[in-house]
């Protein structure tokens, strides 16, 4: 027989226990609980099914559900580890863990590499780099001539592609980031250290007390 808990907390598909997620990420149990509050908010903004759909992700990022952005698409795809088109709570916490100030720098470097390896080939090709620069320019007011774009891409590639084989592999990327640490600045969200202040999990705690 199932459990009929009148005060039971409704959990969504993909929900994982905070203690489990805290053990696998830089977050404490309280921080994971606070992230669950944020997750509930994001995952119910358009479709209240406890899963973050791409439109909900875009709405939170851009205040516009229909905005398309190459980088937001890439982030969404990397968060969606199961590749089922939605971000579940466990995926959300584990992925955000990489952005925690205390997460290992190797994890941040690896995540950024996967982000920029648009076609998932295991290396970043010159065409991909150019495609990303064009995407960035498209979303900004910056206008650069084709020549200038080529120069920026060529120059960056010549610095990063140490082996000169026309692609940046993980080893080269790691080396390049060690010389240019600012490249992974956006892989750290200082905000995550204060997540319990932003999303105090009073409700969750009182539910725990209720059941005791």
């Amino acid at each position: 027989m199932g459990c009929f808990c009148s005060k039971g907390v409704k959990r969504t598909p993909g929900y994982e226990e905070p203690t489990v997620l805290a053990a696998e990420t830089p977050f404490t149990v309280s921080e994971v609980e606070a992230l669950y509050e944020l997750f509930k908010k994001l995952s119910s903004s358009i479709i209240d099914d406890g899963l973050i759909h791409k439109e909900e992700f875009n709405l939170a990022l851009f205040r516009n559900r229909n905005k398309r952005n190459l980088f937001a698409d890439r982030i969404f795809d990397l968060f969606d580890v199961k590749r089922n088109g939605v971000i579940e709570f466990g995926e959300f916490v584990r992925s955000l863990g990489v952005f925690h100030p205390n997460a290992p720098i190797e994890d941040k470097i690896a995540f950024a590499f996967r982000l920029y390896d648009l076609r998932n080939t295991g290396s970043i090709e010159q065409e991909e780099l150019k495609e990303m620069v064009l995407a960035l320019l498209h979303e900004s007011d910056l206008v650069l001539s084709e020549d200038v774009i080529e120069t920026i891409v060529d120059k960056t590639f010549s610095q990063a592609d140490a082996k000169g084989d026309g692609k940046i592999d993980q080893e080269e990327w790691k080396e390049f980031v060690s010389k240019n640490p600012s490249l992974i600045r956006n892989m750290t969200l200082p905000y995550l250290k204060d997540i319990t202040l932003a999303f105090p999990s009073f409700v969750l705690r009182s539910e725990v007390e209720d059941s005791e």
Binding site: L136, N180, L189, Y191
Partner: peptide
């Protein structure tokens, strides 16, 4: 910094799509 002196990855990292702090705005 003039864009032409910028590293392409530096330029890319300024994308709004990579600024996840927006997720935490109330």
């Amino acid at each position: 910094v003039a864009p032409v002196t910028m590293n392409a990855f530096e330029l890319i990292s300024t994308s709004q799509g990579l600024n996840l702090s927006s997720l935490f705005e109330k």
